[in-house]
């Protein structure tokens, strides 16, 4: 099995899927004064991980497990009330799909790309990508859970000129929580689509719409 190396390739921030342009809601949180230092960043990441992170990780795990990706895409819509965040999820899904099909071509990826030409929700695409790469549901969940916190951490380094060592230390301290969320997501995926979590974060939904309307911003979301 070569899966451990495949997981590194997929989880690498340099994997060309466009995630670097997104702050995961951190840009409006910094602007509102809700993230001012490393401690705030840690609280922000923990809250995001346990809400949208868990929900997305479970969708990815379910796709990696082989559940119907179109039903999962619909489940993702129902779990994403913000049109701005739905648009971001589909745009990132489309970008990931391009990279994934070049990297680990599979009939399932091709079928989803044909059914959702404007992009499926990113976690669903990631789950199918993991599946094509020979990875399992928990790997897919780990990948998504990690993205949920690494995106804001990287963004806050730029937005607040936070010490990158401090931001990385925040991520390192979150690793036990990341493992727990990935395990929880994979366990839910094994139970079927009806058991998937729908954890949500009011502030992320509220600020996403306002941020999408900012005339000038550093990050797309």
């Amino acid at each position: 099995m070569t899966t451990r190396a495949a997981l590194l390739v997929l989880a690498d921030g340099r994997f060309p899927a466009g995630g670097h342009a997104h702050s995961g809601g951190a840009e409006p949180a910094v602007a509102a004064g809700r993230i001012r230092d490393a401690q705030d960043l840690a609280d922000y990441c923990l809250g995001r991980l346990h809400t949208t992170g868990l929900t997305s990780a479970a969708l990815a795990a379910a796709a990696a497990h082989g559940l119907d990706p179109l039903a999962l895409d619909e489940a993702a819509d129902a779990r994403t009330p913000s049109p701005a965040l739905r648009a971001v999820a589909r745009k990132l899904g489309r970008q990931l799909m391009r990279a994934a099909r070049a990297t680990w071509p599979s009939a399932e990826l091709a079928a989803l790309a044909a059914a959702r030409p404007r992009g499926a929700h990113q976690p669903v695409v990631l789950g199918l990508t993991a599946r094509a790469a020979g990875l399992g549901p928990e790997d897919a969940a780990h990948c998504v859970a990690y993205e949920t916190v690494s995106g804001p951490a990287t963004a806050v380094v730029r937005l607040l000129s936070l010490d990158p060592f401090e931001a990385t230390a925040v991520l390192a301290r979150l690793t036990p929580a990341l493992d727990r969320v990935a395990a929880q997501a994979a366990a839910a995926a094994r139970e079927g689509i009806g058991a998937l979590p729908a954890a949500s974060a009011p502030l992320l939904d509220i600020t996403a719409e306002a941020h999408a309307a900012w005339p000038v911003r550093l990050f797309a979301s």
Partner: peptide, 22 residues
């Protein structure tokens, strides 16, 4: 499915519920 939302708050909820993301 049209809407599915789960909220969890308080001492028994997972960490970060009171924080800047939630």
């Amino acid at each position: 499915p049209l809407l599915d939302q789960q909220l969890a708050y308080g001492p028994g909820a997972s960490g970060g519920w009171d924080g800047p993301a939630v």
